[in-house]
């Protein structure tokens, strides 16, 4: 919150906070995150693009990070807000570890914490401009949940943010089942990411897949998907779309 150095604090009805700056719109954003439960834990995928408005400005933004021992966080939306959230969580996990008593925050706890942070910030009319996906495994329990920038939160067997909600969820609903193996899970995520790459203009063909199990987090090296743009439906996309040019 950068307070503009004002002449005299014009303390109106809104109080001294009124001349502070809030996030009115995001600057650098990341697009969809897709995640699902599988046999041994959670798989999550996100590409590495960072858009400055509609310009694809950055090409290797890591949008998935491990949180403590049991959790994995993926974010779409404002990248700098995500970095601030990571700072909050680093502090949270540090203080949790400092107890050094064998207790630790699991994915459920971190998810609820994030819900509180997001909702609290929106109540200050200063939201953190992100959709967050939180997955994890603790004591044999697999957990997968989402939080939106205004604090809406839920758990599900598979989740996706942003465009993914429209393009990936239908695929997941159709093909997801509880006993997905690692290979099947990755294949399913790649299918989703490929559709997103074709149809989401801010997606880039450089992505990571992260896995969290009882053993811990592994995040893959960046790689790209094979694409095929010669489908006839891609030839003249506006044909038959009345009103487009």
């Amino acid at each position: 919150m950068n307070c503009m150095d004002s002449k005299q604090p014009e303390t109106g009805l809104l109080g001294p906070e009124s001349d502070s700056q809030r996030t009115l719109y995001p600057y650098v954003t990341g697009t969809s995150v897709v995640a699902l439960k599988y046999k041994d834990g959670i798989l999550m995928a996100a590409d590495m693009g960072g858009s400055y408005g509609s310009t694809l400005r950055y090409k290797s933004v890591e949008r998935m990070k491990p949180i403590g021992k049991h959790s994995l966080l993926g974010a779409s939306g404002e990248i700098s807000d995500f970095q601030e959230i990571l700072r909050y969580l680093d502090e949270l996990i540090l203080y949790d570890n400092m107890w050094d008593d064998g207790n630790s925050l699991g994915p459920k706890e971190v998810h609820n914490y994030l819900t509180r942070v997001m909702y609290n910030r929106r109540n200050k009319f200063n939201p953190l401009w992100n959709s967050l996906v939180l997955g994890g495994v603790k004591n044999g329990q697999t957990y997968l949940g989402m939080v939106s920038m205004i604090g809406v939160n839920f758990e599900d067997n598979h989740v996706a943010t942003g465009f993914g909600n429209h393009l990936a969820r239908p695929i997941l609903r159709q093909e997801w089942h509880e006993n997905l193996s690692f290979e099947e899970g990755v294949k399913l995520l790649e299918k989703c990411m490929r559709v997103l790459l074709y149809r989401d203009r801010s997606a880039v063909n450089k992505l990571q897949i992260a896995k969290i199990t009882e053993e811990g987090v592994t995040i893959s090296q960046p790689y790209s998907l094979k694409t095929h743009w010669e489908f006839s439906a891609f030839q003249n996309p506006t044909q038959g779309a009345v009103g487009s040019w």
């Binding site: 008593d101 706890e109 609820n112 509180r116």
Partner: peptide, 15 residues
């Protein structure tokens, strides 16, 4: 439990 939706570990409360 408001913040974490889980019970406070007893040892921590005692500390």
């Amino acid at each position: 439990s408001f913040t974490y939706e889980s019970p406070l570990p007893v040892g921590r409360l005692v500390v």
